[in-house]
Nucleic acid binder design. Structure first.
Lengths: 124, 124
DNA sequence: TGGGTTACCCACCAAAAGGTAAGTATGGCG
DNA sequence: CGCCATACTTACCTTTTGGTGGGTAACCCA
């Protein structure tokens, strides 16, 4: 279980390994639009078309959206399905690995929200 | 509970809120050295001196380390304690909020490791 | 023939992040 | 006096990331 991980262990190798793994995980999520994209895909059972994603990610431009989707695809988070028709139709959906991000994101969200509240308290 | 979060809900407002919270959380962790620093601090019960951190974060340079520590301090993740002596001594430690990152990081690490394994399988 | 649709690509630019190498301040010590 | 150690700061440069504005291919329809 993730909860049982012994953070306080003094083994520098273990620490380094964790740091590496986490850095690695974050690298996959970094990029201005990736979290937005992933949350949009989490929010719909269905796959989303490129144009649909473009509409839902307010403020994104095509180049960026394509770039981020490509990276997510390369990193095994989303799948890209091309329907050979005119005009073109391409759908994006979360892979199993993408869906497995759920618990991590949930924890992160909890932490972020708690943090926001505490920070607000201190300012007041 | 974080686990119970309903990812599949179709509410676009909720999705946007989650995306924002997660983006926010990631913003705090982004930066080439932050995870390394945090993992090092998790790995020791004690606070760490600047020079000690510098030694433990292989490849970091002073400027970057200071920069990242400053941001972590501003974001409420670490504390900075100055001992007024010569030569100077400054110690860094995790705040409560920093320690609260534990579960998120544990989940992320689990995901990252699982992912690495699966990716390796596919390549082989 | 020429416009419409969709999912891209490309050349180019601006801003942000990361990195190097040189300082600086302080006081103890020989 | 001059060197040491520690924790920084500063000027400057390179790399990465983000963004704009134009293509382009494909086929349908009028």
């Amino acid at each position: 279980m993730a909860q049982d991980r012994e953070w306080r262990c003094g083994d520098p190798q273990q620490q380094r390994k964790w740091a590496d793994a986490t850095t690695d995980a974050l690298r996959v999520l970094e990029g201005k639009w990736k979290i937005v994209i992933i949350c949009q895909l989490f929010g719909t059972k269905e796959a989303l078309r490129f144009s649909e994603l473009e509409r839902r990610c307010e403020g994104v431009n095509q180049k960026m959206l394509i770039q981020q989707l490509k990276e997510l695809e390369k990193d095994g988070i989303v799948t890209r399905t091309v329907y050979p028709q005119v005009p073109p139709k391409v759908e994006y959906a979360l892979t199993e690995m993408g869906k497995a991000l759920g618990p991590s994101m949930a924890e992160l969200i909890d932490w972020a929200i708690t943090r926001k509240e505490r920070m607000a308290d201190k300012v007041t």
